[in-house]
Amino acid sequence: MDLKALKKQEHQKRVKYGYMWALFCAVLWGLWYIPGTTVWVLNPFDEMYGEIAAGSGDGVALIIVAVLITAFNALTVIVALAVWNGVLGKFGEMKRTVKEFHPCSKWFFMASIFGGPMAILGSFIAMGFVGGAFAAVAALMYPVVGSVLAQKWYGEKISKRAYLGIAFIILGGITIFGGGLITELGSGNVAWIGYLGGLMAAAGWGIEGAIAGKGLDIAEPDVGLTLRFLGENIIWWIIIVPILAIVGFPMFKYAFMAFEPLTLMVLVFAGITFGFCYVSWYKSFPLIGVGRGQGIGNLYGLFAVIFIFLFFGDVPAWTILLGGALCLAGSSIMFSEDTGEMESLRGD
């Protein structure tokens, strides 16, 4: 084989791996909505909801419970990632990276602010208030935020074809999102805070991706991601949960009660799916770019709807099916892109 052919083959392999990681991310991310939805009806969270709702009302109760669930999610994710990094032998690199606060780890901690209290909390709120399928598809808008930020901020190239794919995905997201909203508007009972949670998820994940890309440039993805979750654990367990406890919410009482087998198993399931969805997500970015990585990862919306149907038997509305099809079409458009002429993903 001549040099040129080998070169092309190698490049295609690279892009293929990037897309493969992004697809893994989509499947795991979709699976995450199963434990994410289930955990709401399990104790101690169900009981906690009841207690706070009796004193402070449903809205406050939902947000406080969502905070505790998100905090536990972050905790199980970091356990899963610690195991992962241990297996890969990357603790040494983690120590070296965390010391580089200014050029490197700063970005991961910033990403955790948008990823945690904005995106993941928003998702749990949407799951609790509106439902898993909705929460999943509401966040489908995030590649818009991510791609635009990545392009404006550090000049990442987005081809016309990628734009077209993103447009399809967004159209699909709007169809699913709008479908649920219109039905609820008809019944005159709209869970606005749930929809706000959906928007938080979309904006949060988009911003997180763009910020994380800045630090990922010069760090190991596995390490960067662990630091990002370290940041999130600090935010929840050292800042927000203690503050809420001081204000008078029964945070620690219920936190200690979470250590019962079924609840713990569901939380660990959430940690594993979410942790590894992030591993794959971050791995895809350097290979195919933030915009495209997020675009393919977006297939999670469809996977989530399928998994929720399989596990809970919720038959999706036609708007969800149509929207899902549009997402699939959009991702295929991005998939089939010929990256041959794109030597580097960024402009010089």
């Binding site: 690279r14 010069i218 190991e220 993805p221 993903l345 960024r346």
Partner: peptide, 18 residues
């Protein structure tokens, strides 16, 4: 890691050989 840096646009390959 090198591949990631290259696809991130920080390195470019100037020469290739089998």
């Amino acid at each position: 890691d090198i591949i990631e840096l290259a696809s991130g646009g920080m390195l470019k390959d100037v020469e290739v050989k089998v």
